[in-house]
Design a protein around this nucleic acid. Structure first.
Length: 364
DNA sequence: AATACGGGGTT
DNA sequence: AACCCAGTATT
C-alpha cells in the first residue's frame, strides 16, 4: 500500500478519536443499537434520527421486544421518519433474529446480509461498527470523501462505483481498527468533507487530498442528477363527525403495499390529468370529488374549500386541495378500513407527515 | 440499470 | 421556489 493511503488511514483515525461526536447509539456497544441506528440513518440526517432512536429504544429495548411488538406500534414509532418499509423490514428481521439466532445479532456477514432491509452498506456498518470486522461500509459520505481524496471521477450514482469504492475502503481499514476507521470515514464526510462547502483547512488529510490539490473539491464527487418528482393534483375530504363522532374526522388506512403502506390518511382522490387544474370552479371540483369518492364507497357532499397543502416525496409532488364535506353514506370497498379519529386516535394511528400537519391544524 | 420509496435541509 | 442529500427492494 502506498504512503498516501497509509497517511490517510493513520491521520483519519487519530482525528476521529479526538473529535468523534457523542451520539445516543455510541454510548455503549450493542449490536442491536448499531442495527437500529443504521437503519434509521439510511437517507436520514443524524439530528433527525436522535430523538427517534431514543424513543424507539425506550419502547423496544431489545431484539425480542421489537419482535414481540404489534406492527402498528412500530409503524407509529416510525411516524414522520419516512421510508416506512424500513420499519416493517426491521421488525421482520428482528423476528428472524429472535427465532433463528436466539435474539442475538449474528457475528456473521452472510447471515446479517440475509436479513430484510440490510443491504451492502448496512451489513458492512453492522459488521464493522458492532463486531470490529474489517468490512467496508460505503455510504454517500464515504463516496464523497474517497472521490475527493483520491480524485475519482466515477459517477457515484452508478452501482458499479460503489463496488469499486468498497474495494478501496476495505483496503484502507487499519489492522484491528475497522469500527473506529469506518465511523471516522463517515464522520469526516458529515463534519468536514461536506457536500457544499467542505472545511478543507480543518481536514486532517488535506495535505495529500488529490481533489483539493487539483482544485476540484467543489466539483467532486461526480453525480448525475435525479429526475424531478411527478406532479399530482389530489382532492382530499375533511369529513367531520356528528353525534357520537363529534369532534372527529374520518380517516382510512392505505393498502398493505406501495407508497405509505398501511399508514392512515384523509380520504382523497387523484384528480385525472385531463381535467386540468387552474381555473376550475368549485362546483366542478365538488363534482369530481363526489363522483370519485363515491366509487370508493364514500358518499359525500362537499361543503367548502378548507385549505391547500403541498408535499414532495422523492418521486412525486402532491398538490392537495382539502374540502370540508358532509358524509351521507359509507360503504367501504375492497376491505379498506375507515375510522373516526380525534386527538386520542392520533396518538395510536400512524400518519405520514402531510396528514399529520393537516390534522394538527384541524385539531388545533 | 432504472425505478419506487419520505422527509428535510440549504440557497 | 429551486436545488441537494441518499440505502434497499423490486423490476
Amino acid at each position: 500500500m502506498d504512503e498516501q493511503k497509509r497517511y490517510f488511514s493513520r491521520e483519519l483515525l487519530l482525528w476521529y478519536r479526538a473529535n468523534k461526536r457523542d451520539l445516543p447509539w455510541r454510548r455503549q456497544s450493542n449490536p442491536y443499537y448499531t442495527w437500529v441506528s443504521e437503519i434509521m440513518l439510511q437517507q436520514t440526517r443524524v439530528e433527525t434520527v436522535k430523538p427517534y432512536f431514543e424513543r424507539f429504544i425506550g419502547k423496544f429495548p431489545t431484539v425480542e421486544a421489537l419482535a414481540d411488538a404489534p406492527e402498528e406500534e412500530v409503524l407509529k414509532a416510525w411516524e414522520g421518519l419516512g421510508y416506512y418499509s424500513r420499519a416493517r423490514n426491521l421488525q421482520t428481521a428482528a423476528r428472524e433474529v429472535k427465532e433463528q439466532y436466539g435474539g442475538q445479532v449474528p457475528n456473521d456477514k452472510a447471515k446479517v446480509s440475509a436479513l430484510k432491509g440490510i443491504g451492502p452498506y448496512t451489513s458492512g456498518a453492522i459488521m464493522s461498527i458492532a463486531f470490529n470486522r474489517p468490512e467496508p461500509a460505503v455510504d454517500g459520505n464515504v463516496m464523497r470523501v474517497l472521490s475527493r481524496y483520491f480524485r475519482l471521477h466515477d459517477d457515484i450514482a452508478k452501482p458499479a462505483t460503489r463496488v469499486h469504492m468498497e474495494h478501496l475502503a476495505q483496503e484502507l481499514i487499519p489492522e484491528g481498527c475497522a469500527s473506529d476507521f469506518n465511523q471516522a470515514l463517515m464522520e469526516l464526510g458529515a463534519l468536514v468533507c461536506t457536500p457544499k462547502s467542505p472545511s478543507c483547512l480543518l481536514c486532517p488529510v488535506m495535505e495529500h487530498c488529490e481533489g483539493r490539490m487539483a482544485g476540484e473539491e467543489l466539483i467532486l464527487p461526480i453525480k448525475t442528477k435525479a429526475k424531478p418528482p411527478k406532479p399530482e393534483l389530489r382532492y382530499a375530504a375533511l369529513i367531520e363527525g356528528t353525534g357520537e363522532h363529534e369532534g372527529k374526522v374520518l380517516v382510512r388506512q392505505r393498502p398493505d403495499t406501495g407508497l405509505l403502506a398501511k399508514m392512515w390518511e384523509l380520504p382523497h382522490i387523484l384528480v385525472p390529468k385531463q381535467v386540468g387544474i387552474v381555473g376550475m370552479s368549485d362546483a366542478e371540483s365538488y363534482a369530481i370529488l363526489h363522483h370519485s369518492l363515491q366509487a370508493e364507497g364514500v358518499d359525500v357532499a362537499p361543503v367548502e374549500h378548507w385549505m391547500d397543502a403541498e408535499h414532495t416525496f422523492s418521486h412525486i409532488h402532491w398538490q392537495m386541495r382539502v374540502y370540508r364535506c358532509n358524509l351521507r353514506n359509507l360503504q367501504p370497498k375492497d376491505n379498506t378500513v375507515y375510522k373516526w379519529a380525534g386527538p386520542e386516535e392520533m396518538e395510536e394511528l400512524a400518519f405520514p407527515n402531510v396528514f399529520v400537519r393537516l390534522l394538527k391544524i384541524r385539531f388545533q
